[in-house]
Nucleic acid binder design. Structure first.
Lengths: 195, 195, 195, 195
DNA sequence: GATGAATGAGAGTTCATTCAT
DNA sequence: GATGAATGAACTCTCATTCAT
């Protein structure tokens, strides 16, 4: 039970619907303020039935996080494989992260950032391992850019400034606005690389 | 009761200690996971006594937010008054925000960002009014910079990218690290303004 | 369905295995703390399948008790038929009860004693009828002994003191100990009959 | 909180009433079938209030056991101090145990015997320590009797047979019956000692 | 102002039982 | 007969809040 599976792919399985509705509610009301009865109602089952799919409420949170990180990481690796130009690869990362933060996984991403403390210590570490690999991808590309003389700021600090700037977009960027995600990515890229 | 007063100034009043300890706990464990008994224990009183100072637990959260915004805004206005050069004024804003996010008010600032949803709708609006004024200060200065041809990105978008980048520093910047807040402000400024 | 059948004889029928494993678990953890899933797992089937054999969890408890009493009673009657000497017949009863309490039916006997309250009132009465017959056998023999001047205590009270002493052996007697059940029966007989 | 105090002495304290009513219910319906709401209703408080007095439902069970053992042990030691004659001291022990099992502490004693498995392993051991001391008192006196040539059976086995016989009286002895506890003690003593 | 026992609604979780396959 | 997902009532326990002292 509960093997990690791509959130989008498993689509209409009960497990998938549960994770999706839970992510929506966790994002909207916060993990603590969301009751298992809320989740059950959103999925259209009884509260007790939740526990056939997940051992505990925290389990749901955990698998939202794990599934999401794994999905994003896979997408990012696929995108990176398409170019060898450092700046273009950086653009890919920025665009992927903007997509992750503002696209279909946006709610799960928000949960990943905002509900961190609701996870037991032990599980935080397991998620951290996945995150470390993800961050390693970013650092590699930024170091390529630095080696190519394309960025002026220390790669470690730049990654962090970008991480904040990009994840924060979830609080203000709306798809129906004037700027597309591609435009936004370009503007963010402009902050990062020299002329 | 409960008139908003500067968090730092009121120092050792019971109200001030309560707000400070509560902010610390809210930041550490989250608002929902912090019990009034936790707060009472941290201050050294009994749980029932809390309600002589605040009408409810949510009240505590509310006044942490209000006091903090007002304090930061005041400090920012004082700093802005010291120069008329747009770029220097922008540096002041960046530095003030970094200080707010990483200095003594850091825990209260984190609460302001992370515990937003735990506030009742009505009170969210009241805090938003204070925030709007604060954001208005930022936009004015960024527009000055734009008028002076110092920035390449749209002021509205730039403010948001910066807001994310700066507030995110709380997750990684440590005072005991190599870079001072002044250095960090310079690096952030470098992202924002042209050469 | 559910006609009472000798627990030992029905050996490997699903019903028999179910009763045996259930008795083991009820004894070990108590009726309430044992879940039907525990029982199903012990037998190697799924929880839902239990209900093809027994109408309810309580049914299982009931048939453990009924089967056990009937089996013990039958064994005791067979043993009594072998002698006409009152003291020897008393020794038979004592030995049979020690066997019941400490032998293969020991777990079922413990369930009979300890899980009494978990049975619905109505069913308690049905089991009581079987028990009354069993106790009637004891009283007859003790009255024979009294008539023969072999016991000094009132038969009714003596039976009860013996019942307690013998059933309590389950809490301390171990087959691998020094004393055999025959020895133990002799010691108990020594308490009951005059020199 | 929860220091062990004599059940009878603390009489009308909330804690004492809680323990008494809980013992009554645990005895009547069993620990598992008794809900904290049952206990609260019996005491006349709300279910949540229970947890101001005891950390958990199991805590209640634990303190019923501890308080009871300590009370009985104390009473027994006082009684033993009154004579040096081994047989009279044995009569005291038998009488005390009969009183414990059938008197005011009878329900708590039954709980002690029947609800053992509902206690967590760790706590079982703590109660066992108290019980070991209690049993040590019994063994000492039985060894005195053996040394004086008054008993024919091994003290260790005799204690166990007596323990079963005496505790079992709770299932059948009624105060309003013909025999007094003193009579019953004499009959039990007659089983134990020669002539 | 401070206390802390009491409240009572509501939380997460369990589990005997059902039933479509 | 067997399965196992689903049910839904009931459980223990939590906690913000009240109030008599």
């Amino acid at each position: 039970m509960n093997e990690s599976v791509d959130l989008a792919v498993e689509g209409e399985s009960p497990r998938g619907r549960l994770l999706r509705e839970a992510a929506h509610l966790f994002r909207e009301k916060g993990y603590e303020r969301t009751t298992v009865r809320d989740i059950a109602a959103a999925v259209g089952i009884q509260s007790g039935s939740i526990f056939h799919h997940f051992r505990s409420k925290e389990d749901i949170l955990y698998y939202i996080m794990v599934d999401t990180i794994e999905e994003i990481t896979a997408r990012m690796e696929a995108e990176l494989a398409r170019s060898t130009d450092p700046v273009e690869r950086l653009r890919s990362l920025i665009f992927c992260e903007l997509q992750a933060v503002n696209g279909q996984t946006s709610e799960a991403m928000a949960v990943l950032v905002y509900e961190w403390r609701s996870l037991a210590k032990e599980r935080q570490e397991q998620v951290l391992k996945l995150r470390d690999y993800y961050e390693h991808l970013w650092l590699s590309v930024l170091q390529e850019c630095a080696a190519a003389g394309q960025i002026a700021v220390d790669p470690g600090i730049l990654r962090r400034l970008l991480a904040g700037a990009l994840s924060w977009t979830v609080t203000w960027y709306r798809t129906d606005g004037s700027a597309s995600l591609e435009d936004l990515a370009s503007q963010a890229l402009a902050l990062a690389v020299k002329r």
